[in-house]
Amino acid sequence: MQYSLLVISREATVEDIGEEAMQWGRAAFDAYAKSLDSAGVLVSADILQPVAVSTTVSVRDGELQVQDGPFADTKERLNGTFVIEVADLDAAISWAGQCPGAQYGAVEVRPSAIVFHDHEWHPVA
């Protein structure tokens, strides 16, 4: 079963938290991704750029609408994702609990409903 681990926290810059904390975060996420990979459960991982460089796209009444920035104005942001393939929700929760982002934000665990592979969409059983 595939699960997305959605890392949600406040965005922080070096100026906000200091170089030492930033170095800790880089090292912690590197070690976490490598542990997922060595366990054979990592499908993909992305640490996202700041929300200030995001663009939100929607179509309303047939018209393309493009908005600079995020759809919602919140303090917490989606800052990264890890897609893992594990046996069950308990395993996904265990991995989410080991994510460095869980120490200062939250990690939402969401199962995949449909996955795209072999050039087709497949429902997840």
Rank of each mutant, 00 (worst) to 15 (best):
P111W: 03
T81K: 00
P100W: 04
V51Q: 04
A31Q: 13
A33P: 07
E11S: 03
N79G: 15
H119Q: 15
I8F: 00
D30K: 09
Q98F: 02
G25C: 10
T13D: 07
V41Q: 12
K34H: 13
S112P: 08
S54H: 10
I93L: 15
D88C: 07
E120D: 11
A33W: 05
Q98S: 11
P70H: 00
P70Y: 00
E76T: 03
I114L: 14
G62I: 12
Q67P: 05
A27L: 08
P70F: 00
S58E: 12
D118I: 07
M1A: 02
F82C: 04
A113E: 14
A92R: 02
S9K: 01
E120S: 10
H117F: 15
V7H: 04
E76G: 00
K34P: 12
P111N: 05
A72R: 02
D118Y: 00
K75V: 13
Q23F: 03
V109W: 05
E19M: 07
L48A: 10
Q65P: 01
V53G: 11
C99M: 05
G62A: 08
A45I: 09
H117P: 11
F116C: 11
V51E: 05
D68I: 04
V53D: 14
W95T: 07
V51S: 13
V124Q: 10
D37G: 09
S94D: 13
A28Q: 11
Q49K: 12
D68S: 06
V51Y: 02
G101Y: 01
H119E: 15
L5T: 03
V43D: 06
M1R: 01
A27W: 00
K75Q: 08
P50T: 12
S44I: 06
S58C: 10
V14D: 04
E15G: 06
P111G: 07
H117S: 14
R60D: 12
V107E: 01
Q103Y: 03
I17N: 01
W121T: 15
A28P: 11
S44R: 01
V115M: 08
V43L: 11
F116A: 12
Q67I: 14
V86G: 05
